[in-house]
Amino acid sequence: MDFTLKIWRQENASAKGRFETYKVTGISSDCSFLEMLDILNQQLIDKFEIPVCFDHDCREGICGACSLYINGRPHGPDSAVTACQLHMRKFKDGDTIIVEPWRARPFPVIKDLVVDRSSFDRIIEAGGYVSINTGGVPDANTIPIPRANAETAMDAAACIGCGACVAACKNASAMLFVAAKVSQFAMLPQGRVEAKERVMRMVAKMDELGFGNCTNTGACEAECPKQISLSHIARLNREYLSARVL
């Protein structure tokens, strides 16, 4: 398969970026999107040019490092996958593919397609945990947890922190990311103890970092590689309002 790639190139955080056009040919349809970029980078290295920088690590859809906005969609045209799990068979031979970095004020571009997502760490730092120290905890089976609640908590906990929700949202809102963590703990008795403080601190941090506001458009849910549901945002709203009002 042959493709024309239009890729965002930017030397560093302060440089003014631009789109560059590249051609890759003879790509196998079983090739993953990132392997296709590897092939492009090999071509660039052969020509003594600077390869395209992009974040990637596990290449099996779990670390959340990849952050490519492909043809208008975070992680590209396939659903429920990250860019590393996207295969070229999802494109048509001869396609032009536009690759951009995540765009959001709290995700500044570092280089080319690499963005700084440390704001997500700041949000977790503000309260995305159960405040217990190592040791001195009760036996794991002391508190039975209804299976359905544990499953809902797991649905939320599946978040890989890639930031596709922010990238997809027209408002660059981080609500789905925050909701996933708040919701996970809200469903478990261990997390309920400090549920109020947690939700207030995490929402305050999210606002402070300059993410947009949620307008319930649902783009986050549609693009989330782990298919985290909007119902978690409703739960976040509920948790927040009950913490504030009640």
Binding site: G72, R105, A168, G210, G218, A222
Partner: peptide, 24 residues
């Protein structure tokens, strides 16, 4: 206004996710 400010640099290709159409 806050939402616009949250994305100072726009995408070349806007997201067309299949979601609540009118919400946009």
């Amino acid at each position: 206004i806050q939402n616009w400010m949250a994305r100072p640099k726009r995408y070349r290709k806007e997201n067309y996710s299949q979601t609540s159409f009118f919400s946009k």
